[in-house]
């Protein structure tokens, strides 16, 4: 079991409900959601579209402050602009007017880290994701997979202990997607930060999530929490257990 007793929790969500206003009506997005993620673990949030997965990510990032329930990140109530949290949104959020190098350095600029320290950090993360040669290009000159890697590099430059990703690989072709999933796994195994990713791909959830949280149709509730401790084992994707879990998840999602 990965939920090691005594291991500190990175994320602890208790009875979280979120609703938003739409044309003067309160529309519930999430209802009574509870789960916990240990420090250094990975978690995949999966569910039908519109179930509030992204909303949940916004709450964890601190960008969405109006919710009820208790959300602790690293034992503190979640707060906006927590410095060790990095968020990667679906469309990567790269700035078209900044070159790759400056997009990656943006978080550092904002935090007042500049000069040699900035250059060194940007170089290190760009080498890590294999895009150092592309540093002088603009995002429009990159492929989808390369853009996603720039977004990952930008997050890594902040040296986060919590990495939140909203459907990070959904718009990529199958080959690039698998390659990037593997790369994310490598980065995680090296740095052991906590990773939470939203996905609508069952395979991706099993490949990357030590904890898989299955959410229901709108408004999102936790249907089940599946433990998946073999994440990161070499060749896991090809094992019978992997495929068995696919079937289990599919049945939970499409009863």
């Amino acid at each position: 079991m990965i939920n090691l007793a005594g291991n500190k929790l990175m994320v602890n969500v208790e009875n979280l409900s979120v609703s938003y206003r739409q044309q003067r009506k309160e529309v519930p997005a999430l209802r009574g959601v509870s789960f916990a993620i240990p420090r250094g673990g990975t978690c995949a949030l999966i569910g039908p579209s519109g179930c509030g997965k992204s909303t949940l990510l916004y709450v964890l990032s601190g960008l969405l402050g109006s919710f009820s329930g208790r959300v602790l990140v690293d034992d503190e109530p979640v707060q906006p602009l927590r410095r060790q949290t990095a968020l990667i949104l679906q469309d990567y959020g790269l700035l078209p007017w900044k070159k790759v190098f400056d997009n990656v350095g943006l978080g550092l600029d904002i935090r007042g880290i500049n000069g040699r320290e900035r250059t060194a950090r940007v170089q290190r993360v760009l080498l890590e994701v294999g895009l150092w040669e592309m540093r002088d290009r603009y995002p429009s000159q990159l492929s989808g997979g390369q853009r996603q890697r720039v977004a990952i590099a930008r997050a890594l430059a902040l040296e986060p202990d919590l990495l939140l990703m909203d459907e990070p690989f959904s718009s990529l072709d199958a080959l690039t997607r698998e390659k990037l999933q593997k790369q994310l796994l490598d980065i995680w195994q090296k740095k052991r930060m906590t990773v939470v990713l939203v996905t609508h791909s069952i395979e991706e959830a099993i490949f990357l999530g030590q904890i898989i949280i299955v959410l229901s149709e709108h408004p999102g509730r936790v249907v089940d929490i599946v433990e998946n401790p073999r994440v990161g084992e070499p060749g896991y994707r090809k094992t019978p257990e992997f495929h068995a879990l696919t079937t289990v998840l599919r049945e939970k999602l499409i009863p």
Binding site: Y58, S61, L63, L81, R83, T85, A86, L87, I88, L89, Q90, D91, Y92, G93, L94, L95, L106, G107, I110, R111, R154, L158
Partner: peptide
């Protein structure tokens, strides 16, 4: 301006 871009930059700590 795309709200996603604004949120992404906000999540980097931007005021």
């Amino acid at each position: 301006i795309n709200a996603g871009v604004i949120n992404s930059v906000k999540s980097l700590g931007a005021g």
